[in-house]
Nucleic acid binder design. Sequence first.
RNA 1: GACCCAUUAGCUCAGUCGGCAGAGCACCUGACUUUUAAUCAGGGUGUCCCAGGUUCGAAUCCUGGAUGGGUCACCA
Length: 496
Amino acid sequence: MTQGEELNELLQVRRDKLDQLREKGVDPFGRKFERTHTAQAILDAFDHLSKEEIQEKNQPAVIAGRLMSKRKQGKASFAHLQDQSGRIQIYVRKDEVGEEQYETFTSADLGDWLGVSGTVFKTNRGETSIKATEITFLSKSLRPLPEKFHGLKDVELRYRKRYLDLIMNPEVKETFLTRSRIISAMRRYLDEQGFLEVETPTMHTIPGGAAARPFITHHNALDIDLYMRIAIELHLKRLIVGGIERVYEIGRVYRNEGISTRHNPEFTMLELYQAYADFHDIMDLTESLITHIAQEVLGTDTVQYAGHTVQLGQPWARKHMADLVKEHTGVDFRREMSDEEARRLADEHGVEITPAMTFGHILNEFFEQKVEEKLIQPTFVYGHPLEISPLARKNEEDPRFTDRFELFIVGREHANAFTELNDPVDQRERFEAQVREKSQGNDEAHPMDEDFLEALEYGMPPTGGLGIGIDRLVMLLTDSASIRDVLLFPTLRDQG
RNA sequence: GACCCAUUAGCUCAGUCGGCAGAGCACCUGACUUUUAAUCAGGGUGUCCCAGGUUCGAAUCCUGGAUGGGUCACCA
C-alpha cells in the first residue's frame, strides 16, 4: 500500500485511535520495557500447579507482547499476548488498573504491543494467566492482522510478508528456529573437529567450482564484470595449498537457473576441505555430521519426510553408481563399453541423451533417470564418471570413474564430495576438456581457471572435500515440502 | 521455458443457468467483572487481478496479459 492510497475504514479507525492515544498523553510508539518473564516461562513454571497453589505463591510477573485476541466483558476483559516464546492470557479488571488504563486497553486493537504487570493466577477454566495491575502501551499497529482462526493461508502473502506468516503460524517460527539450530550444531561439530571457519569472496572473476550458469554483475571502478559465486570450492582449495589443513565455509551461493520447490536462485552451502583425507574419510565425516545434527537438534536419528521414514542411524549404504545402474536396469557400465554402445543402450532403455554425450555422461543419465528417485534411505553413490567430475581425482583402478560421491536421501542429492584432484597437469587437461564441451554448447561446463591452476602447481596435499546443501538438509529435518518453507524470504518476482 | 490450476471485503472463503456483491472472522455502536473461535442486539466496509470482446445486461462466457501455486524441464 502506498502513501497516496486512500485509507479504508479499518485503517482509518486505527489512525484515529493513534491520535486518541496521543491526546491522552500515551506514546503510541513507546519505549524500553523490562519484563521478568516470557509467556512460555510462566507456563513452564506454573501451568502444572493447581489454582490454589498458584494463588498461594502470589507470583508477580511482567510480560510483553502482541495483542492477539480480546474478549471484553464489561468491566473486565480477557486477552492473549504473544511473544517469541508463545501466548499467554491476561485478565484486566477496571477496578485493578483504573479507568484510564482500562480505556486504553479496551480501545487497543489486535496487533498492538502491550506490556503487562500483574500476578500469575489460574482461571476457573484452568488457564494459567496474568491478572493485570498495570497496562503499558508499547506500540500501535495500524493494520489489521489476518483472521485469527484461519490465519494466513495465501502462500504468496506468506512468502512476501513473512512477518505476518511468523505472527499467525507458530509452526513457521519453529521451522526457522530449527534451521538456526541445525547450522549452529553444524558449526559446533566442525569446530570441535578442528576445522577453521573462513569467509571467501562471493564475487568471482571466474565462475568455477561447479557446473551452473552464474549471475553477472559489474564493478564500476575496476570496469570489470564479476560473477556471483556458484560454489565456494576453488578458494577453499587455495587455502589448503596455503597450509590450512581443515577449513570450511557456510555461505550463500548463487545460480542463475530455474526456480522450483527445490531450487532458489540463492541458497546456502557448507563446503569443507580436509588435507590428507580421501572420499572414504569424507563419507564417514558426512554420516556422523548429519546424524549428529539430527540427534542434537531433533533428539532422534529417525525422521519423517513426505510420508517416508528415514533412518539416519549409521551405517549408510555405499554403492558404486555403475552397480546401482546395473541393479535397476541390468546394464553393466563397469565393463569396457564404447560411446556408440552406450548410446544404443540408452536408446534401448528409454534413457534420453543428447548427441554430444559420451560414455560417462550416458552412465550419469542412466543413474539420474532410472535410479536417483528410488534412493529413499541415505545412500552414498560413488564412482561418478570422469566427464562430469572435472575437479575430482581419477579412480586408480578404472580411470573412467572418479573418487567422488553424492549422498542421496528421499531421492534427492544432499551432498557432493570427492577426493580432490591435486595434480595440476591432470587438472589443466580436465579444464581443457570442459572448455571443449563449452564450445560444443554446454554453457554450464567449467571455465579455464589459470589462477587456480597456478595455486595447484605450488602443491596441494591429498585432500578430501565436501559440499552440503543446507536448505535441503533443513527441508529433510523439518519435513518441509518446498525450499521456500525453509527460506525466510524466498526469491519471488517483483510485484511492482 | 512448457502444461495445469488459482486470483471476489483487512483475512478465510461462497457466489447456481449471464439478471441488485455474499457469509464468518476482523472492524464500528451498545450490553456484560473468570472468558477463551466468549456471548447477545444493531451496522456491510468491494478496482470481483488487469485490458479488450460478446451481450439489453458479465464476478460468471471469449481473447490477451499479470501474479502466485503445482507438475515437468534445468539444476543443488
